[in-house]
Design a protein around this nucleic acid. Structure first.
Length: 417
RNA sequence: GUGGGUGUAGUCAAGCGGUUAAGACACAGGGUUGUGGCUCCUGCAUUCGUGGGUUCGAUUCCCAUCACCCACCCCA
């Protein structure tokens, strides 16, 4: 147990971490082009932020949060998602007094007590963006367009973008009732899980996997048909914007976000290449969240993108992430004098910006070359008594297997070319 | 929370009731007392996730337990 990471957590090992750097750097660059500024918030927050923000009847809040009491008797929760903390910080620091709209991004760990499976962990990582302060569907389109561009930039082109409108609190309740009315006399035939959904979230019944429920829900009304005028205009607007930006999408009336704060726009980027958990990126609009948390009535829209799922997808789609070079120079030494000399040389080379390494296990010269090879060094510098006596070093190009003796002062010149 | 699958070295694995647990890769050392990638040699599991049970005998059969994986649910 002592040597096992906790269930649902994963170490990112040194030979894998370059993939994370690559993806994170690409994301930061995209954010820079789209003019989103990073916001860093604590790993934990007051529990109430999430019960109020995410919604206290959601699965996340009901049974998935890592909540504990600290020594000051405060109820603390490890972030289960990224949006509420950004909202909290926005309100706390009164950033709505800055020029609007506000555009933020974050790269964070999230924690949910889940049963782990492929693409689902208890600690996972999200990159996300948020736009606060505009009702304009341009913002929704920008957020979706950002996700699309970012994914494309990683060589991922065949993700499916699904969009939907889940309405505002008013029209959604009308719709739910319409759905219940439709299913009322079919209730007894629904599967057990859907019987539970009937009261709580009848919209879920529509995408139940059970063939019986699928049959029963045929002909059921769509949320899209129950949108109020305002929501309908917004959805049409969104589609118009996406068309203008030439972003392909499919309308999926089955999309329902699991966090209560969403309104109107809901979207997902989905793949079938990484198992059952195929939603790589999910987001939408949340017009009442900021107000609910105690801020002014300011609307917002954003998305969260799962880094682990992204990595799985990159793996599955063969998207090659370039491996960084391991080593420029290996300094091989023979004897005590050479070692002392090599130590200084290694330090100089590193100061000059070269990735440089020496052996510290006392390997013989053959062993040192083998080690240099394992580190895929471009050059190996050999220092022995001969070299020291002549004030020269031997430089071997490991790729071409050629070597020559050069004066000490010419080492760097030799390596650079 | 519910279901299914798997657990033999760092990794991939064979063995499936009988004396010392194949093999490959990796790793370490050597063949060459100053030169890597190829080749050759040597080393590398008193033990088969853990604990019980059955048996003269268990890595092999049974039970429990733990871990990992996958799916449902839900989500990133």
């Amino acid at each position: 147990m002592l040597t096992n990471a906790p269930k649902g957590t994963k170490d990112i090992l040194p030979n894998q971490v370059y993939k994370w750097h690559y993806v994170e750097n690409a994301f930061r660059e995209a954010c820079s082009r789209y003019v989103f500024k990073e916001m860093r918030t604590p790993v934990f927050e007051h529990t109430e932020l999430f019960t109020r923000g995410v919604g206290d009847t959601t699965d996340i809040v009901e049974k998935q949060m890592y909540t504990f009491e600290d020594y000051g008797k405060r109820s603390i929760t490890l972030k289960p998602e990224g949006t509420s903390p950004v909202v909290r910080s926005f309100v706390e620091h009164k950033l709505y007094a800055d020029v609007q709209p506000s555009k933020f991004y974050y790269i964070i760990p999230c924690f949910r007590y889940e049963k782990p499976q492929s693409g689902r962990l208890r600690e996972f990582h999200q990159m996300g963006i948020e736009i606060f302060g505009t009702n304009n569907m341009m913002a929704d389109a920008e957020v979706i367009g950002f996700a699309s561009d970012f994914l494309n930039s990683l060589g991922l082109h065949d993700l499916e973008l699904r969009i939907n409108s889940i309405g505002c609190p008013e029209c959604r309740e009308t719709y739910r009732q319409a759905l219940r009315d439709f299913l009322k006399d079919k209730y007894d035939d629904l599967c057990d899980t859907c019987k539970g959904r009937y009261d709580r979230n009848p919209m879920r019944i529509l995408d139940c996997k059970s063939p019986v429920c699928q049959e029963l829900s045929k002909g059921a009304p769509y949320m899209l048909d129950y949108l109020c005028e305002d929501c309908k205009i917004a959805f049409d607007d969104l589609k118009k914007n996406l068309d203008a930006m030439e972003i392909p999408y499919i309308i999926d009336p089955g999309i329902v976000r699991g966090l209560d704060y969403y309104t109107k726009t809901a979207f997902e980027f989905v793949t079938n290449q990484i198992g059952a958990q195929g939603t790589v990126c999910g987001g939408g609009r949340y017009d009442y969240l900021i107000e609910q948390i105690g801020g002014p009535p300011i609307p917002g829209v954003g998305f969260g993108l799962g880094i682990e799922r992204l990595q799985l997808l990159l793996e599955a789609s063969g998207g090659a992430i370039p491996k960084p070079d391991n080593l420029d120079v290996f300094v091989a030494v023979m004897g005590e004098r050479a070692k002392i000399f090599g130590l200084k040389l290694m330090r100089d080379l590193r100061k000059q910006g070269f990735k440089t390494e020496m052996d510290s296990l006392g390997r013989n010269i053959k062993g040192q070359f083998k080690y240099a090879d394992r580190l895929s060094s471009n050059y190996t510098i050999v220092i022995g008594d001969n070299e020291l006596d002549q004030n020269m070093v031997t430089i071997k190009n490991m790729k071409t297997s050629t070597q020559k003796q050069v004066p000490l002062q010419d080492i760097i010149k030799e390596i650079v070319e």
